[in-house]
Design a protein around this nucleic acid. Structure first.
Lengths: 208, 208, 208, 208
DNA sequence: AATGAATGAGGGTTCATTCAT
DNA sequence: CATGAATGAACCCTCATTCAT
């Protein structure tokens, strides 16, 4: 997997860089969600982050860097939350159920941010775009690994060639809750959604 | 369903309006795909459309109107292509298989434009956003209707309450080919994809 | 000699381009003389030229382009004025006297603009710098040609190898009036200066 | 002659002031030569000087002060080098030959810095500009004094009224090597240049 | 005396939109 | 109807300078 890009900063104190960038990311996330990347100005971000435009540019080199930091941070949280739910010490099929449920709940909590990534990732700086896409794929890989484990331990029945596609399906059937919420919430509760999506997958690959 | 928005034009001749707007949309689509809505200038659109910036503004009121027209045109084509494949005179389950296959092939052909809608729809003028979302839902409704017909004719077994969600799943599992192509085409052919996605759904709801 | 650079313009009407650029150059020259290139803002130039900042950028691509246009225009006038005084139908030595006198008077008239070139030429865009320097050398070449003609017709006695250097001397001894005026005008009139400088050169190379 | 300007410093220790300012000047000279005064940032100067931007401002009050210090230092060295070559115990005309040769060699060694002064002197703070110009004139005065001595001792024949102008000519004919080097070095060696320039002047004013 | 993070006015440039021709 | 020159608000970014530590 490609390396995370190091964004240069004029400030030397690493702790301070971390802190200021966190402020910046928080501000940017809420503004981007509200108005999108292009309609948000750097001044607005600086303002909301609680410092001046000059200070903002002490910690990044361009507005696009902020988008990269935002995408990176969101993916980071996404991944952490997901991994946290993966239990290695149970059957693959059970692990999958738990992971899917957890994943969809995460989509519910992070729906704005997931949507944000879907819509703005294309504007990320050219030299980091592949890192961001890799990051997206990494989430799918987590599901793929669970599937492989299930095949191994016999709890999942699935052509090995199809694990990748099934993993993508799982991911997309979960992310749906984020990017189609305007339609889904009109008719279904989160619990119903989790139940249905999990069953759709599990029925297809369950060994029994 | 909400009405299509009437975008005012300074020009009276309806035929001309239609022609000019088509030129405009064609130009805009290819430019938006290339660089996104915000990075494309109205000048570029006018240029590529083959007329002047002044003329452009004879047929729309703002740049956002172009995005609306583009989204509308893409949805229009999407819907037409999909409806064209729906045969009323066969069992619901068979109709579904054909429709899904056709839908995914359409995603393959129109992937750039589908992606475009996914990424830029949020920038559509506030007063038309719900029309655009409705339009998106309409596609799902086509699948929902097939499902209902299948339940009616006994070829599909599915809790009536779940038809909406299953229709969304079908749509999303198909659209995937457009918005995850960077990952999918590395490992699967279009035919494999169609085969797998169709089975995932059919297995779940087939009456036998 | 290198080609004059074509600066792109968004406007098509060539006549208008010429007119607007002239306005722009006039404004820029007086502002650059007053405050220098770097301290003059594009807004000031547009203002003084009588149009908006937007219009300014319809006729150039960057602030540096204005400096290039300014340098080019000044050299143009310099060259025209000088050539206008060169008579081909007299002895080289006499031609030289007339040309030097005329050149120095031109320096007197154009002292601000000559100084401007001396001080700001270094800021001209990289890809045009050699054209600007060539332009400067062209003036020297005019004097060199007169010298060569004088050697040919026997009115001037000078080692052929030294014509280039002597031509540079003539140029610099004349330009002095522009870039050392703060010291010279305290003690000498223009006429005294012309008389002395001409003699210094003529005495050195006169054939008799 | 006007007094050297005292630039205030927040630091008391005179020795330290001298040391830090020397570091600062060295750094600034090389940066100004490379990119010019306006394109060089105070940060860059502090960096290259080996201390922080905060420290820089302990020893000056504004960026322009640095330019003043730079010009002053260059003039200082110029003057020292020139005076070092002036022998009081020989005939004026011989003294002049030696001084011119030495001066031109100095131009060769210091060409970048001489050019720098020519191009940036105008940006020196308003209240110090006349001091800087005086400094320039001082160099001319050295030549003027030699001329006067030559007239006195009969080795030079020159209208007393013309000594000032001749001194300027000598200076400019020497400085040429610095500010026209791009053209001159293509055709002449330093020795040829010295030989020719000296003869041009000496022939004109030699008593015999 | 030294540091370097913070500031914000101000600069160059873009581009959606208008309107006289 | 078509044109395209003109407009200026607004954007991103820089950098000289300050001041708390």
């Amino acid at each position: 997997m490609r390396e995370r890009k190091q964004i240069p900063s004029l400030v030397k104190d690493e702790k301070l860089i971390k802190k200021r960038r966190e402020q910046m990311i928080d501000a940017a996330v809420s503004l981007f969600i509200q108005s999108g990347f292009h309609k948000t100005t750097t001044r607005e971000i600086a303002n909301k982050a609680g410092f001046s435009i000059g200070t903002l540019y002490e910690y990044i080199e361009s507005k696009e860097d902020i988008l990269y930091l935002v995408c990176d941070a969101i993916h980071q949280e996404l991944e952490e939350r997901l991994l946290e739910a993966v239990q290695e010490n149970q059957k693959g099929i059970d692990s999958l159920k738990v992971a899917m449920s957890h994943f969809i709940r995460t989509m519910s909590v992070m729906q704005d941010r997931v949507l944000l990534i879907y819509q703005e990732a294309k504007s990320v700086p050219k030299d980091t775009i592949s890192y961001v896409l890799d990051r997206e794929e990494k989430i799918t890989e987590i599901f793929e690994n669970i599937l492989l484990r299930g095949i191994e331990d016999g709890s999942i029945q699935l052509d090995r060639k199809m694990t990748k596609l099934m993993a993508h399906n799982i991911t997309v059937l979960g992310e749906m809750w984020a990017f189609r919420r305007w339609a889904l919430t009109k008719h279904f509760t989160l619990e119903e959604f989790i139940e249905t999506q999990t069953r759709l997958i599990v029925d297809q690959i369950s060994a029994i």
